[in-house]
Amino acid sequence: MSVEEGVFYVIAAITVMGGMGVVFARNVVYSALFLILALLAVAGIFLLLSAEFLALVQILVYGGAVTILVIFALMLTRVQDMPAALDSPQKPFAFLAAAAVLAILILAAVGTTWPGQTEKINAIPLRDFGDALFRTWALPFEIASLVLMVALVGAIVLARGEDGE
């Protein structure tokens, strides 16, 4: 087993641990902290896939902004005061559904022969990536920023209320 594989298994274990913490923790604040762990570990996975730029964006956007928003939402809605609100009675069905999804995904991932698959990671130079993003994909990129702006303005309007309270 190479060093790279060892690193992968460690980071993958941290990711799965964080994910399990998010869905199984009995305390919502622990859930949010496990979410931060999982998101940072996914940034590590991106690094292993030699997507450095996306790893940095991941840490900035998820590690910073998204988790802060989630913790704000937890704080403002006081979910932790209602332990009954944690798990719904459909938990066994949820478990079955998740197990079925897991089985299908793993079978599909292992059983498929992917056309054109290479054995090693083809690192994409950041320069080429930026070139593609701002030339070939410039229009979708602008539309994405429009979506982001509309969503944030909409969020402000929604949270503020009609009577401007």
Binding site: M20, V23, A94, F95
Partner: peptide, 11 residues
């Protein structure tokens, strides 16, 4: 894990 969380959580 995400599928399980969406179906099993209530908040």
């Amino acid at each position: 894990l995400g599928v399980y969380g969406v179906l099993a959580r209530r908040s």
